[in-house]
């Protein structure tokens, strides 16, 4: 089934000669992609008007790859990322993770997918204001664990959360609530939160969008570092400069993805 999807997508791509990204796997990377998006469609209905935001998006992301999706504001970048992360459902098309179409899974399994395999980083951080930095990072691990399982897991999860906070340079501010942190610091906490369950895929939605240039750069350095350590990343942005360090840049235009040359 999934094999089918993959083949049909590449087949349709070559047949129509459409500037869709064929994203051939980088030379030397064998096997099927970690993530495969095929013919994804998403509509919004507002005030009787039909807005066809995604009109057949195809995308393959290999293990360890850093893909940047560029597009103007309102082009549907966030929508695409939400679909990849299983937060939303498309009208048509599939998102396959490790060969399995996530939208064919039951609801609980999609929740689990978001919890364990995907980490979200948002433009406006979205930290929980009542929790400290450390607790915000831990929340994904807490959600993963039942209340009875938590005492057994807590130590390990805390260790990892502290390690992550140290890694993003916030070892000193673990007990602070988001209100006490700067924008850059909040985004670092958000990145640590996204990584707490060691996700296969990091989804970043304009992670520097709310930050000044210098802070943005630091965040990008952090992301680049993560990539170097083997983290697979799909990042969307409207800023070409930000996308420069990614392995691959794709443009979302008129509801479809186009490759670098397009």
């Amino acid at each position: 089934m999934n094999e089918n999807n993959t083949t049909s997508s590449s087949a349709s791509g070559s047949q129509t000669l459409d500037p869709r990204p064929q994203t051939p796997a980088p030379p030397g990377s064998p096997g099927s992609p970690l993530l495969n998006v095929t013919d994804l469609h998403k509509h919004y209905h507002i005030g009787g008007q039909d807005l066809h935001v995604l009109q057949g998006v195809d995308l393959d992301v290999q293990q360890g790859e850093w893909v940047a999706v560029l597009g103007a504001s309102g082009s549907g970048k966030s929508t695409l990322l939400h679909l990849i992360g299983g937060l939303d459902r498309p009208e048509q098309g599939s998102v396959s993770f490790e060969g399995r179409d996530i939208f064919k899974l039951p609801g609980a399994a999609i929740d689990r997918y978001r919890n364990r395999h995907v980490g979200f980083v948002f433009q406006s951080y979205h930290l929980l204001p009542e929790l400290t930095a450390l607790e915000n990072v831990l929340i994904g691990a807490m959600i993963r664990s039942s209340i009875l399982g938590w005492p057994g897991r807590r130590g390990e999860a805390r260790k990892r959360a502290i390690e992550l906070l140290n890694r993003v340079g916030l070892g000193e501010r673990m007990g602070h609530r988001p209100g006490k942190l700067s924008g850059g610091e909040r985004q670092r906490v958000a990145i640590a939160r996204a990584l707490v369950n060691e996700p296969d895929l990091l989804l970043a939605d304009e992670p520097t969008g709310n930050l000044d240039t210098d802070t943005g750069k630091q965040i990008m350095e952090l992301i680049a570092e993560l990539h170097q350590q083997g983290q697979t990343i799909v990042m969307v942005t409207h800023d070409l400069e930000i996308a420069a360090s990614a392995d691959r840049r794709l443009w979302l235009r008129e509801g479809a993805l186009a490759g670098e040359e397009g």
Binding site: G85, D111, F120, F122, H126, L127, L128, R193
Partner: peptide, 13 residues
């Protein structure tokens, strides 16, 4: 918004 965040981090309905 926090509810949205919790869902994004994997909380179920």
């Amino acid at each position: 918004r926090d509810i949205g965040v919790l869902r994004a981090v994997g909380a179920s309905q």
